[in-house]
Design a protein around this nucleic acid. Sequence first.
DNA 1: GAGTGTGTTGCAACACTTGCAACGACCGTT
DNA 2: AACGGTCGTTGCAAGTGTTGCAACACACTC
Lengths: 254, 254
Amino acid sequence: MSQTVDRALSILPLLAEGPADLGRVAERLGVHKSTALRLLRTLHEHGFVYRQSDQRYRLGARLISLAQEAMENLDVREIAHPHLVRLNEQVGHTVHLAVHEEDEVLYIDKVESRYPVRMYSRIGKPVAITVAAVAKLLLADLPENERRAVAEQLDYPMYTARSTPNADGFLKELAKVREQGWATDLGGHEESINCVAAPIRGADGRVVAAMSVSAPNVVVTAEELLTLLPLVRRTADAISGEYSGRTPVKEVTA
Amino acid sequence: MSQTVDRALSILPLLAEGPADLGRVAERLGVHKSTALRLLRTLHEHGFVYRQSDQRYRLGARLISLAQEAMENLDVREIAHPHLVRLNEQVGHTVHLAVHEEDEVLYIDKVESRYPVRMYSRIGKPVAITVAAVAKLLLADLPENERRAVAEQLDYPMYTARSTPNADGFLKELAKVREQGWATDLGGHEESINCVAAPIRGADGRVVAAMSVSAPNVVVTAEELLTLLPLVRRTADAISGEYSGRTPVKEVTA
DNA sequence: GAGTGTGTTGCAACACTTGCAACGACCGTT
DNA sequence: AACGGTCGTTGCAAGTGTTGCAACACACTC
């Protein structure tokens, strides 16, 4: 809607690929160098980009601290955290918390496994939306038409032989997940990693977040992991209860 | 430099304080509602803001995932991480990694304490720049005039009785830190928490990052924590060595 | 010292942004 | 049920802010 802002914002994902110099930015944006320079300067003033010693631009610290604040404002996260920690103490494996927003599902909290073999993931990282157990739960809760629309515009990368292959398969899986109220990912993202996940619901019953326990095959088999399902569901329900008990937004308006 | 972009970017920190509706944003920006609307729409298209069910705006997921990418591009972090984990395994306490950028010092990595009593901090959070041990190391490495300039424009909040009170005291402390090559924070931020920190240097000898070990009084006394100094320094030196050995930027240019 | 490759600046033209006023939707009140 | 209020939204005309250009400054190479 606003050309100037649109261009400026387009610079950020571009820089996320790695540092770039002025010429490169101008070229990728399709604008004159002087224009790119002025946009970069404005971004710089706000700390969104940083100019390293070789004069090239990269993403700035302000972005990181803002994202930090953004996460701290998510109240599900705050409520869920102690429960995640407790679950982790009981089962030892990696515990994740994820939310859905626009067309992404991303981890907003994580408690690391106590086993030496760990799964790679990071808070803030968008998850593999077509295969992750938490993603299935979050998308399964959308109304029929939206679910369909989302499923059709997704890509279906075959991470492994057990990855969801296409929109059709995905919609079937979502229907099943919706039905049963929990989800799994058995080697659909990484061959040797399995997950069990359960939904966290708000007062109106809609799924606001999802949590999962993940563990590699070498530590526990898929069957053993599945025995944890009741515990995972109980934890999710406890969070749901606490979350829907309170006012969902804490107002600070003076 | 660019008014439109400047206004748009100013919306983000504003929303970081908490969700806001259109009128509020327009008011805070000092522009007409229609203008604010168009800016918000552009931010929304890029996923930087999200419109929640009550129509109010808050920071969006894109911001979080971008920040994530920004951090993954920091090569010090990648190199340092395994060393931090190893140190944590040896000493058990919380280990931090921080960098300096513009006028902020922020944590870019953290390995949690194994003790139940933990220090509060988060990756991405700007540190208390006038008292944190890592901040002292990073600022102490600046050339004299810059150090002076930075010190003078800072605020000196008295977190505790042992906080750095003013620019003068801070500059003295920086000089000492620069001299000895390591730093401490003994209850300057939180009464009961102490830190020991050591610098990580690039090939040219300049400090590119700093790492610290933090522990509360109730777990170990300040004296006991100080006995870890040689180990912390050795770890930092190991990281320095590895960091300056490689090419500092990994190019992906096709 | 000419020759490339950067990043940077002043300027004039015009495209884009801006504020306005008016509309529609919604909510609580009378 | 009609009213007044608040809030988000849209089309438009005025003009300001943005744009690309051309020229400059600087660093490096040949």
